[in-house]
Amino acid sequence: MSGPSIEAVNLSKRYGSFLALSNLSLKIEGSKCVGFLGPNGAGKTTTLKIFTDMIRASEGKALINGIDVHVDKRKALSSVGSLIESPEIYPSLTPREALSMVSEIRGLPRAEKRKKIEDVVSEVKMEEWLDKKVGKFSKGMKQRINIASALLSDPDVFLLDEPTTGLDPRGMAEVRDIVKSLKTRNRLIFMSSHLLNEVQDICDEVAMIDHGKLLVYDSLSNVTRRASSDGGNIVEIELSREIDQQTVNNDIASLANVSVVERPDPKRIRIHFSGGIQNQEKLLLDLASMKIGMISFHPSTSALEDTYLKLIKDTL
């Protein structure tokens, strides 16, 4: 059986004369996390709403695991957990009751229901609130229950619209950990976000959209490379001890495929290098062998930001 997939086929959405989504074609397959980026009004939520049957496409198809959402919604969404625009739960219900309702709608076996609800509520750290009425909850607490609801039936595909909205920094980190753990369980996550560092941290691939049009869909490293002036990648390295300029200029700058090395502060360097993932791996090994006190090595957040700004600017 092939992995989970979602596919937008020439998807368009018009509101009168306003074209919210224009001929979007995008196919995502396999277990991975894809960040869906774009400015406000770009069409991110519109796309996710079409995939969850909250709105209808003016043209085109939205397929989940090959099933058209508008032709057979029940079957298409049976394998989807979603979180669109911070839904509200009936305030008089408790999380246990609200999640029971969802589990009954989704056909979770009765014997498993109770444990599954307790497990997902525990995953979002809301055990203490399981039997309190939702009406008394803060926005962040409600969002945690919404995430629990998306996890409940252990779906193959997750459609998440800015899932960390309304959460405090700790909550945001917890949600990121949940999403990361989903990736290890062979799930496909399609997640819109304004937070580039969040996408950088969680996602393997990025789709960028503006004015309803898809600008790019590629792996994170390929996308960031496109915007780089030298066509290369940028990685950021954090060090446990200070590094002098001489080591930077002489030793690091001379490593294979390295084009530019920046030293924003004595414990941090940014390396521009050419090539793909193999060169990145080699660079990591080279730096590790130099024993310069490297404590982290990750693609530059600012590289994604640069790419984002460049692509969005280009469409203005």
Binding site: D53, M54, K73, R74, S78, E85, P87, I89, A98, I105
Partner: peptide, 15 residues
């Protein structure tokens, strides 16, 4: 108006 529909509609059930 209360956005409770967002909690229900995105599930695999007919409107």
């Amino acid at each position: 108006q209360n956005k409770t529909g967002y909690f229900l509609v995105a599930n695999p059930l007919r409107r």
